[in-house]
């Protein structure tokens, strides 16, 4: 049973359990088609990208509630600049990524420099960013319908970058957003396991005071964690806008909860100091498959919510027993 002691193994068992449900309730074989899996991967990618940033923050024993709102804000910015102002994507993408990172850094500053609780600081950012998204967009979806002064609409074409991001490659077998997620996961993985800052994140999450007294640059490390979380949220926001072909100020509503669920189901501890990107990937697959299975079987909304709640609790309980 030594195998079971590894958190990855536990997370995989939870995933396997969900897959077994899928094989059993395969919706007349729909579950066995690759397109089903491809679409699941596409759908979960945005959440999983958020999960990558969330993993960093949670490993430092923090939390970031603002990522959902940041998706909305960056989606609106991306659409506004690229569709309505018609700027080049080479200009727009860096600006939007910068905006997301800046929001993350603001939360990070509140938390590390001014010692606000992560929950409160990012809650404030969550509310603020949603407000900013609505203010910038005027409460309307920023789409290819451009409002003219006389109240009528001019319809423009969606920029090429949108089609590029929402496309699929490898003979239509994998979505670009999934590849973007894999890149994000790779970046987070390298940070956590190969870079000094990643080690510092684990140290801070494990014992912040001991880390500080060991000379770990606590403020800088937290800034990096929250800044990257904001950056990943901006990446997710761009993906979201590209897939919706518009910037919805309401986009990403309550996505932060799914992102947290993905991280926690994987087995990263909310108490900090333990976890990894591998776990988050498994967590994302677990949640993704769960939603997909419920969806292809056309399970009613009420049952879905109840089932999802039960499975989240069960998976986390299962993770917990490993300590004994």
């Amino acid at each position: 049973m030594k195998f079971l002691k590894k958190p990855e193994a536990r997370a995989l068992i939870a995933l396997a359990f969900v897959l077994i449900i899928g094989f059993t309730f395969n919706a007349d074989g729909a579950f066995f088609k690759w397109t089903t899996h491809r679409d699941m991967l596409r759908y979960i990618s945005v959440f999983a990208i958020l999960g990558c940033g969330m993993t960093l923050v949670i490993i430092t024993a923090g939390i970031d509630l603002s990522v959902g709102s940041l998706v909305g804000l960056t989606a609106v910015l991306f659409s506004l600049f690229s569709i309505q102002y018609g700027w080049s994507p080479w200009l727009v993408i860096p600006i939007v990524l910068l905006a997301g990172t800046a929001c993350g850094l603001i939360s990070g500053t509140l938390i590390s420099k001014w010692e606000m609780q992560p929950f409160i600081a990012t809650l404030a950012m969550m509310v603020f960013a949603r407000g900013a998204a609505k203010w910038i967009s005027g409460g309307q979806k920023v789409s290819t319908a451009v409002l003219q002064n006389d109240g009528s609409y001019k319809y423009v074409n969606v920029p090429e970058i949108y089609n590029f991001i929402s496309a699929k490659v490898l003979h239509n077998n994998i979505a670009i957003v999934t590849i973007i997620f894999i890149i994000c996961a790779g970046v987070a993985y390298i940070l956590l396991s190969k870079l000094r800052w990643g080690r510092y994140m684990f140290a801070i999450g494990g014992n912040e005071e001991a880390a500080r007294l060991s000379g770990v640059p606590v403020v800088m490390t937290k800034l990096i964690a929250y800044g990257l979380c904001g950056l990943f949220a901006a990446v997710a926001g761009i993906c979201q806008a590209a897939q919706e072909q518009q910037g919805d100020p309401e986009a990403g509503m309550s996505y932060e909860l799914t992102a947290i669920a993905i991280v926690v189901i994987g087995g990263t501890s909310l108490a900090g100091g333990r976890g990894g990107i591998g776990l988050t990937i498994i967590g994302a697959l677990t949640i993704g498959y769960l939603e997909k299975i419920l969806s292809i079987n056309a399970v009613g909304e009420a049952y879905r919510l109840m089932l999802t709640g039960v499975i989240i609790a069960a998976a986390v309980l299962f993770q917990k027993t490993r300590k004994k």
Partner: peptide, 13 residues
């Protein structure tokens, strides 16, 4: 335990 070590990290770390 409180201020010296990060207990859930390895000896090397």
């Amino acid at each position: 335990k409180l201020t010296g070590l990060v207990l859930n990290m390895s000896i090397a770390d």
